[in-house]
Write a protein that binds this DNA or RNA. Structure first.
Lengths: 339, 339
DNA sequence: CCTCCCGTTGGGAACGTTCCCATTTGATCT
DNA sequence: AGATCAAATGGGAACGTTCCCAACGGGAGG
């Protein structure tokens, strides 16, 4: 079917070694030879066989992007898209391809970890088990962990400042004169939950405000749950005048509840989200949110992974990407005409 | 580093052939042998090498999901996510892995097509050039084309009924007593554009309405463009009372313009979108839209591709997945409390 | 008891590259 | 002209499997 390097070699009169070199290290082959070789290849419809190359090089030029989430159907939520996009961009630059993989591909039904395909490295995002990372390392596959922290030797974890981000969000609401601030806390990984929750609490405490447990709801990180939870907060006798939501989707849900209750955003209730995902621009008024630099996270994860693949020891084991508060109209009327 | 089938064979006293069979066709190996082999494999930390297998089998158990879009950064827009998800699900079921690939990975800077990796099949979504498909076929790689139609022999194209969908949207607005209906037409592939545009025109003509060119704007399929275009329509002396947008993102932008103009949705202006993407539930009021069954599209594309990979000729060359109008509050006040 | 057959097992070639090592070529220097 | 050297080229082994073909052993059937 497909023609091989030997066919090309025969056709152009050079050896298979030279043909191989014409593709792998063109500089070491004379111009004359390359001309003939490429011509022969073209006429034979030849393309180098990546599998055979991977076989002998012991290197596939593939990496895997493994998304491991409990809520399995929402595999490609809009949150991860920009990260994946950055990873793909950086990989393409290095002539690497990206497998996108879900937990199901890696876990056997019995729970055992099973690595089906050879790959040169793995970017792991979301919930991560130690066993799976152990297993990858047994195979000498470098791993970078994204948006999660695991205390393993030499494991590079890239996260954002969830704590500081949450704090800045609540600080902002305080500065907008809000004293009754609700928290709609989506259930993510324990670390993320805890950091964002702590940021909320500490911001309030630092200002000398009391924590009202009635204002704190832990919910699934979905639109519907956000709407429902906010509707509940609005019914409280002493209802909050603002809500900090630990992601944008929940915040969008919360906004729906406010609007449906006939209240105005931000005059009656201010809303702040987290992530600065595409959702934040879609809603009206646009959402004040804590920006996570997804692109940078993905880019960095890829770069660091390629460093590891090339054998450079990363040294660092924690990288925290700073968040940034983006003030839009959902929390501050003065912003509305500035944009 | 990694141990091979031969290490396992030596350790357990069986031949490499038997070890190989213990993984590839377990039924043909005695229980006793399998027990010993798996034990040896475990102690040696052995995993079958997919590359070597692919080499001799001439089959990688990988497919590629190629997204080819002009607006390059928005590679993973929310529109494609559910499709990819379905493809991944079906692939996982068959023990296949999925490469996610953008046009850049496949196109050389000089515009030539370059297929880097071996793969058993390709699902192509978005803009598709004939040359790239020709090139894939030269390599005997089966192709399924998604959301686009190309007139090539034996090429299976899966699309949705853009024309009927657009028509149903406009019909619905007519039934809601709207007579001045705008069209915000996002620029997609020519086929999609034309079909949705024609649906709009024909629906109006069938009702005996005149086409007002002032009401028709062709724009980029973005939030910002949607907002801007709608703002423009609202300024018209004889402004439309409804707008049909050829995707949900544009519709969300249009809604923003309406809200910012201080008008009510749907009382003053009704909005209808297309796709039923996640956007349609996020906005408030929720968006009436033409649903495309993305999951079914992805599922079907994968199934058909695997048929082709297994050598079954598909026979059919066009599959059209019907659309469905989903009426929500952005076009019909009576719906608001039904949900 | 011999033959036949099936369930198991094993040996070697093949898959299409790369890479190590050697050889050839032609130019430069003395 | 001979020696030296770098640049260019070639031959064969190796990468880790699968698969074809052959061989072995033992139970069934004659």
């Amino acid at each position: 079917m497909g023609s091989t390097i030997i066919d090309v070699a025969k056709k152009c009169g050079y050896s298979k070694t030279t043909v191989s070199r014409a593709y792998a290290e063109p500089d070491s082959v004379s111009e004359k030879a390359k001309l003939k070789i490429y011509a022969a290849a073209k006429s034979l419809n030849y393309t180098p066989n990546a599998i055979a190359r991977a076989m002998v090089r012991q290197q596939t030029e593939n990496i895997a992007f493994i998304i491991n989430e409990k809520q399995s159907p929402a595999v490609l939520n809009p949150f991860y898209s920009p990260i994946l996009e950055a990873v793909m961009r950086e990989s393409a630059r290095r002539n690497y391809s990206v497998f996108v993989v879900t937990n199901q591909d890696v876990l056997l039904p019995n729970g055992e970890v099973y690595i089906k395909k050879q790959m040169d490295g793995v970017i792991f995002v979301g919930e991560a088990g130690e066993t799976i990372i152990d297993r990858l390392r047994e195979q000498n596959i470098p791993v970078v962990l994204l948006n999660n922290v695991l205390d393993m030797e030499d494991l590079l974890c890239i996260t954002t400042s969830h704590y500081e981000g949450a704090m800045s969000a609540v600080d902002h609401l305080y500065e907008q004169k809000h004293r009754k601030i609700g928290l709609l806390a989506g259930r993510f990984s324990p670390q993320v939950n805890e950091a964002r929750y702590k940021g909320y609490v500490d911001a309030l405490v630092r200002r000398g405000l009391e924590i009202n447990p009635q204002y704190i709801l832990e919910i699934d990180p979905t639109l519907e749950a956000g709407e429902q939870a906010m509707a509940h907060l609005l019914q409280l006798e002493n209802r909050p005048t603002a809500a900090f939501c630990t992601n944008d989707t929940v915040a969008a849900g919360a906004m729906k509840a406010v609007i449906r209750a006939g209240l105005r955003i931000p005059e009656d209730v201010a809303i702040v989200g987290f992530d600065d995902s595409s959702v934040s621009r879609i809603v009206e008024p646009e959402l004040t949110t804590v920006r996570i630099d997804m692109d940078r996270m993905g880019q960095l994860a890829a770069e660091k992974l390629f460093d590891l693949i090339e054998g450079k020891p990363s040294g660092e084991t924690r990288i925290v990407i700073p968040t940034e508060l983006i003030v839009r109209s959902s929390s501050s009327r003065t912003q509305v005409h500035l944009e």
